[in-house]
Design a protein around this nucleic acid. Structure first.
Lengths: 277, 277
DNA sequence: GCTGTGAATTCCATTATTTGGAACTTAATT
DNA sequence: AATTAAGTTCCAAATAATGGAATTCACAGC
C-alpha cells in the first residue's frame, strides 16, 4: 500500500545539504556540523567507533566534539553509548517553520490546489542542491508531517527540484551542476547532467515540470516554479500521487492550475515583501 | 474560535531549553548556540544591531559568528540585512523526529486515546526545565503539526510538565527547581516553587496531573507521566481541550484511561529498549 | 576470579582559531 | 554635501582546539 503518495526516500542520499565539493570556511562550527550531519543522516544511532570511522578525526578530538554537541542538546547519548539526533533540534525547527513567510503566504493557495486536485500538494524551496519541503497538504490520513516537511531531497529527481532549476540564471546553474551527486533511485532517474539539462530546457519553455517516477517508483508529480526577482526565493509547488491514479494526461491537465497557483503565490509575495524582490 | 485546543504560547518565554543559570562548558559551540537561540526565539527577523544589543559580544566577534552560522545554513540573512532561522534546521529536525523511538512506540497508543476521548492528545518529553512536544493527534482540522510539535513549553504550567516533575527523584527535582523562571501566563499559573511543590506531591500520589488553564486561558488538560526506570526518558501523555467543553468531572473521568495509555507505552518501551531501563 | 581484547575516556604540550578594539567602508538622513 | 548610523574588515593577543599517547572501563573467555 502506498502510504501517502509522496516520496519517503529520506535516508538514501548522504548529506544533501552540505556542498561536499567546497569545504566551508566556518572554522570550528563547520567541523561540528559535519558531525551533526553524520549523526542526523545515519539510519540508526551510531556508537563512538562508528563515528570515528566516518569522521576523519583523531579519537581525542572526536570525543570532545561529540561531548560538546551532546552538552548543547544537538545530539543525545543513550544508555547504550549510542549517539542519536537531539530533541533540541525540534525546538529550533518548529520556530524556523512557524515564522517562515514563504510558507505562510503559500498555505491558503496550497489548500485551494488540494481541493481542486484531490491529491497531495507540496511546497519546496531550493537550498544548495537540495529541495527542502516546507509544507504539505494531504487528504484523509492522519498526517505525519515531519515525515516529509523539513525533508531534503535531491533537486535533479523531484518535480519541484527540476522546476526550480529551470528558472535558475544560467551562471547559477553552471555553478550548481558540478556539486550534484547523481544517484539512481529508479530506472527513470537522471544520472548525468546532459539529459538533465535537456529536460530543464524543456521545463523552462513549458513552465512546468514532471516527475515520472524518478525519485520513487510508482510516484509521479507535476510541479511549477516559484521565484522572486532577486533570486532570494527559489522553489516550487507540486501535486503528487501514485502513478496508477495519475495518468500523464491528468498531470498535463493539472499543469495550468498549478502554474496559476504558483503565480498567485508569487504575486502575493511581491506585495508582502516589497516590489524590488 | 479556539483553533486547535492546545496552547500556542510559543514565543513567550525566552530560551527555555538553555539552562541560563549554569553556563555550559562547550567552548565556541556554546557561544554560537546562544546566538542561534536568540535568532530562533525572536518574534521577528533581527538586524545586526538588534543582535549586538542582545548578545554580549563585540562587533567584530559577533559579525564573524553570524557569518559562520549563515554559511552553515543555521540562520539566514535576507536582502534587508535581517537574520532569521535557517531552513537547514528543518532537515536536521525532520530526521530527529522521524527516528525517535519513544514517539514511534507511543504513536498507536496516542491514536487510541484520541479515539476514546475525541480530544487532542499530546506526547511530551522533559528536557532541562522544558517539555518538548514530540507528537500530537488531533481531530478534524487540517493539522499544522509544526505549530506544536517540537515546541518547548515550561514544565511548571503544563499538564505533561507537572506529571513529569511528579516522578522525578527528589534530588533531580531539587536540582531543577532553581533554574525555573516563573512567568505568569494566566491567573492560574504557578509563580513560585512552594505552591508548585505542593501540587507535585498531590500529582505523585494521584498518578495524574491537571492543567487548569495555567498556560493558556480557556485551555485545560489532564496528563499522566511516562518514564523509564533509569531516568533516560521522562515525559508524559495528555488530553487537551477548551475549558468550556472539558469539565473537571470529565477530566477526572479521563484520568484512568490516560494512565492506562501511559502504562501501555511504558510496558512496550521496556520490551523494546531492554528490561534494565 | 583472572586475563586479554577492544572500546571509550582523559591528559597536556603544541597548534590553530577566536577574540576584540579600532580603523574603515557603506548606506541612510538632514 | 555633510553628518550620523550601520555594517564590515583587520591583526596582535588571548583563548580554545588539536591529536598522539596513556589510562580507564566493559566484558568475554579461560
Amino acid at each position: 500500500m502506498i502510504s501517502s503518495g509522496d516520496s519517503m526516500a529520506q535516508a538514501d542520499d548522504e548529506s544533501v545539504l552540505r556542498d561536499t565539493g567546497t569545504p566551508r570556511d566556518t572554522g570550528t562550527l563547520g567541523k561540528l556540523m559535519v558531525l551533526l550531519d553524520l549523526v542526523t543522516h545515519a539510519d540508526a544511532p551510531l556508537r563512538f567507533t562508528d563515528i570515528l570511522a566516518l569522521a576523519n578525526q583523531p579519537r581525542g578530538t572526536l570525543h570532545r566534539q561529540l561531548g560538546h554537541l551532546v552538552e548543547e542538546g544537538l545530539i543525545e547519548l543513550d544508555a547504550e553509548g549510542r549517539y542519536a539526533p537531539g530533541l533540541r533540534l525540534l525546538d529550533f525547527a518548529s520556530r524556523s517553520w512557524a515564522r517562515n513567510e514563504f510558507r505562510l503566504i503559500a498555505a491558503p493557495h496550497l489548500a485551494a490546489l488540494h481541493r481542486r486536485t484531490g491529491e497531495t500538494v507540496h511546497l519546496g524551496v531550493l537550498r544548495g542542491s537540495s529541495i527542502i519541503y516546507l509544507d504539505k497538504v494531504e487528504g484523509h490520513q492522519p498526517v505525519r508531517m515531519y515525515s516529509q516537511i523539513g525533508n531534503a531531497s535531491p533537486c535533479y529527481c523531484t518535480g519541484v527540484g527540476k522546476a526550480a532549476l529551470s528558472i535558475l540564471p544560467s551562471d547559477k546553474l553552471r555553478e550548481l551542476l558540478p556539486s550534484l551527486r547523481f544517484t539512481r533511485f529508479t530506472p527513470a532517474t537522471h544520472v548525468n547532467a546532459e539529459t538533465l539539462l535537456v529536460e530543464i530546457g524543456e521545463i523552462a519553455s513549458a513552465g512546468h515540470a514532471f516527475d515520472r517516477e524518478e525519485h520513487e517508483a510508482g510516484i509521479c508529480c507535476v510541479a511549477a516554479p516559484i521565484w522572486s526577482d532577486d533570486g532570494s526565493f527559489i522553489g516550487g509547488v507540486s501535486v503528487t500521487g501514485p502513478a496508477y491514479r495519475l495518468s500523464m494526461e491528468l498531470l498535463h491537465e493539472w499543469a495550468v492550475p498549478i502554474q496559476v497557483t504558483a503565480r498567485k503565490i508569487m504575486d502575493e509575495m511581491r506585495i508582502r515583501l516589497g516590489p524590488r524582490r
